[in-house]
Amino acid sequence: MDWLLNNAIVQDIIELARPSLFNLYFALASIPIGFPLAVLLAVMKNSSNSIISRVARTYIYAFRGSPLFIQFFMFYSIMLAFNLSHWKPMGIADIVMHPLFIGPMVLILNTSAYAAEIFYGALKTLPKGEMEAASAFGMNRWQVFKTVTWPNMIRLAWPAYTNEVVFLFHATALVYFTLPVINGQKDLMNKAGEMFERDYNIFLHFSVAGLYFLTISMVIFFVSGRIYKRLMRHMDTGEAASFKLKPNYMR
C-alpha cells in the first residue's frame, strides 16, 4: 500500500482532487442558469420582432466574437469599479466580489451566447410540417412551443450542446488566471502551476491535471450520450446507436 501512496503520480492525483472540485463547481454552477438563458436568447434571436431579434443577435455575436479571457478581465474590473460605490454600502461586497460568484457569472454570460447559437441553429431546422400541424389543431403559441418546438429543438441540438458543455468545463481553467485566489481555493491549472514551481516537474503535474480534465470530459460525453439515447428512444433512425464520443470539436 505504501509504495502505491508514495508513487509520484498517485500523490499528484490525490493533491489535485480538491482543486478539481473547483473546476466542477464553476461548470455545474453555470449550466442551470446558462441553459435556460441560452434557450431564451435563441428564441429571441428567432423572434419576428426585429428589435428583440437584434438585441439577442448582438449579444450572441459580441460574446462569441471576443475571448473569454478578456471577458473575465472586463467583468472583474467592472465589478471592482462598482465595489466602493455600490457593493460595499449594500454590504454584499464579500459575496459579489468572490471568484466563486464572478466566475460562474462570466461563464454564464459566455456559455449562454455559445449555446444560444446552437439552439438557434436547431430552431432554424425544425420540421415545419409539425409546427403547422400543431397550429392547425388550434394550439396557441405556448402550446406549440411546449409540444413541438422545445422537444425537437433539444433533440437536434443535444450533441452540439454536449460539446459546448465540455468547452465550458475547459473554460473553467481560465477563472483563476484572471481572478484572485482566496483562501487557497485553487483550481486544477492553478494548483498544477504551484506544484510546478515547487519542483519544476512540468511533465508530471500538467499531465495529471490534463488527466483530470480528460476524465471529467469523458464522463460528460458518456452521461450526455445516455441522455441523448433516452431523448431519441422513440425515433427509429439508428441515430441513437450511432451517437459516439465524436463531437465536431468546434465551439
Partner: peptide, 17 residues
Amino acid sequence: MVRGIPDVLFFLFFPLA
C-alpha cells in the same frame, strides 16, 4: 487530445516543457 484537455494547458505546457 484537444477533445478532453483545455487549450490553455497546452499553451502553457509546450513552451515550458
